[in-house]
Amino acid sequence: MSWYLSPLRPLAVRQGERTIGELDELPLPPDAPHGVVGAGGAGPRQYLVLVGDETVLGAGATSMADGLPGILARRLAALRDGEVSWQVVGEPGASSLRVHHRLVPMLPAHSDVAVLVVGMHDLLARHSVAEWRGEMAAVLDLLARKAGRVVVCGCPPMGRAPLLRWPLSASLAADARRLDAVTRELCAQRDIGFVSLQEMDTTPEDFAADRLHPGDAGLRRRAEAVAVLL
């Protein structure tokens, strides 16, 4: 229950504003946000797109190959015994609003698989459940028209990020559970895959140097969970 956090919410908001204001931006990997893996397989070529915030761009990863795009492309190539062409459309700081109106329209007209990663900046901006529901419903409807299979990563486990202290960590964790409940419902209505990151085992070693974003270990853990739904 999160009722006991209500009187502490203003303190958590101020704490969050101060923490994020002092946060250094993680560098992005130098390799290109697109590629091809699995050449020579017997199956047909698959097209994979990832859309969302800086996590899909590899912030916190050593390279794109070690981030979500590379890991998921290799897993998809192995599952389908074919070549996978992958592309990332992301933007640092993107919220569901930005994904809806700017990033999803930039995606190709059709892909075999689309993976959505969003939520961190909606949480940090303290967007309401109603705002989240409206934007996510629109995003999922657009993605369903652009991809044969859609998988959504739930909100990141910011309540366990080493950078964040109580009560901010507890407040963000409670908000993430509320947003995830909405996302799970919307995905179920559309036969879209949903991966809860709140239920995933998470350790301090899963985080990047900024102690907020996922690092290589955390990205591998997330990619394995998403790959099950491909």
Rank of each mutant, 00 (worst) to 15 (best):
G60N: 02
G60E: 01
G60H: 01
A61L: 05
S63M: 09
M64A: 15
A65K: 00
A65N: 00
G67C: 09
G67K: 04
G67I: 01
P69R: 09
P69K: 07
P69M: 07
G70K: 10
G70L: 10
G70R: 09
I71Y: 14
I71F: 12
I71H: 12
L72K: 03
A73K: 02
R74A: 15
R74D: 15
R75H: 07
R75V: 01
A77H: 07
A78G: 10
A78D: 14
L79H: 09
L79S: 10
R80D: 08
D81K: 11
D81E: 14
D81L: 07
G82D: 00
G82Y: 00
G82L: 00
G82F: 00
E83H: 06
V84D: 00
S85M: 13
Q87P: 00
Q87T: 06
Q87S: 05
Q87C: 05
V89P: 02
V89L: 03
V89Q: 06
E91H: 13
E91R: 14
E91G: 06
A94Q: 05
S95R: 12
S96P: 02
L97G: 08
R98M: 11
R98F: 06
R98P: 05
V99P: 04
H100Q: 11
H100K: 11
H101F: 10
R102D: 14
L103A: 08
L103S: 08
V104K: 02
V104S: 03
P105A: 02
L107A: 01
P108G: 03
A109R: 15
A109T: 15
A109V: 15
H110I: 07
S111T: 08
S111A: 15
D112G: 03
V113E: 08
V113W: 06
V113R: 03
A114E: 03
V115W: 12
L116H: 10
V118L: 05
G119D: 07
G119P: 11
M120T: 10
H121C: 05
H121K: 06
H121A: 02
D122S: 09
D122G: 07
D122K: 08
L123P: 09
L124I: 14
L124N: 11
A125W: 05
A125F: 08
A125Q: 13
R126G: 13
S128F: 03
S128H: 05
V129I: 12
A130T: 09
E131A: 12
E131I: 05
W132R: 11
W132L: 14
R133G: 12
R133L: 13
R133W: 13
G134H: 11
E135W: 11
E135M: 09
A137Q: 12
A137R: 12
A137D: 13
V139T: 11
V139Q: 08
L140V: 10
D141N: 04
D141P: 04
D141M: 02
